[in-house]
Design a protein around this nucleic acid. Structure first.
Lengths: 178, 178
DNA sequence: ATCCCATGTGTACGAGTGTACGCATCGCCG
DNA sequence: CGGCGATGCGTACACTCGTACACATGGGAT
């Protein structure tokens, strides 16, 4: 890694991009808005990230890392005798308990892959990595279905403005996990 | 309904908006791009739809209607003795068989509700309506879970660029439906 | 010590956007 | 039949955006 005058500049820009997306959505993300949030000149953001897609890739990757940490910690803390469904339903409960803001932000980045092929490999990394994590407790196909169901449940909560129902999630995840 | 000089003008604008979103994504949707696609002057789009949100609401509602028709037809055509899981898995298979374009378009409109509260009631209409349809074959909670799993499966296909696996979908939907 | 280049900075330009507004046109209602 | 409001149309303005580019600077290689 080459030394820079401001070695953290790149990271600060990524953090600023995440804050901007959280506050104004991807639609409000621009080189200028990120530059202002990170308190760097416009030229600096265009230098480190030639396109907004590059910036989104970095932001999504960081977002994925954050959630992966939560997931690993949760697994470590969980009662080893508890069922997988209970554990995952509880994880989602904790995920939503801190307000919808964080979930909205992370899902917006994740869902952006729908129309941005450049983001798809990063989204696939996330899905594959999580599936692998769950595969230690169940078979791979079931692991993927658990992820799909969790995504769908989160989506229903976020898109329709409803409330997260942990008992319902536990029941349905349990049917998949068996 | 008040007569207009061009009574279909509003509908044509909505159709044009759907084509624009299909071709360039919501990010490419503007009063001007819609006006060009619908072959009407700029002032006409701003007159009928004061904001882009209004236009998106109309587009999402029409998109929902289209899929609801497919769903009702599928149900009517399905073997009444076949299981619900087989039927839904087959429906998704048909949904993807015509290329990803249509699914991408409809999901983009649907997912737009994440950051646009104005779209959430329309997204909720869709979820509730579909759940009600499925409730004739199973209990309401199971119906909602089936929808959630279908959403999650579609998402994984669309976001990661993977292929739709009908046998896998049938198996996992079956676990929910029992 | 010197040079090269990655990094940092400021500015300018053309393209595209939402919005507003004035005017034209036509159907309806009194 | 006369006017009035809904609808349609074209244009102009202020703003933001991505991009490009010229120049400054300092660290590391030679």
């Amino acid at each position: 890694m080459v030394r820079r005058y401001d070695p953290e500049r790149r990271d600060r820009i990524i953090d600023a991009a995440i804050r901007v997306v959280g506050a104004k959505g991807i639609a409000g993300l621009s080189h200028r808005s990120v530059a202002a949030e990170a308190d760097v000149p416009l030229g600096s953001t265009t230098y480190h990230f030639a396109s907004l897609d590059e910036l989104l890739i970095a932001a999504l990757r960081r977002s994925n890392e954050n959630f992966a940490v939560v997931m690993r910690e949760s697994e470590a803390l969980a009662d080893p005798d508890a069922g997988l469904a209970e554990e995952l339903a509880g994880l989602l409960g904790a995920y939503f308990s801190g307000g919808r803001g964080r979930a909205e932000l992370e899902y917006e980045l994740y869902l952006a892959a729908l129309r941005r092929p450049a983001l798809r490999p990063v989204a696939a990394e996330w899905t594959d990595g999580t599936a692998e994590l769950l595969s230690r407790r169940t078979d791979p196909a079931t692991a993927r279905a658990l992820i799909a169901l969790m995504d769908g449940i989160c989506l229903q909560v976020l898109l329709t403005g409803g409330e997260y129902d942990e008992a319902y999630a536990r029941e349905m995840l349990g049917r998949i996990a068996r």
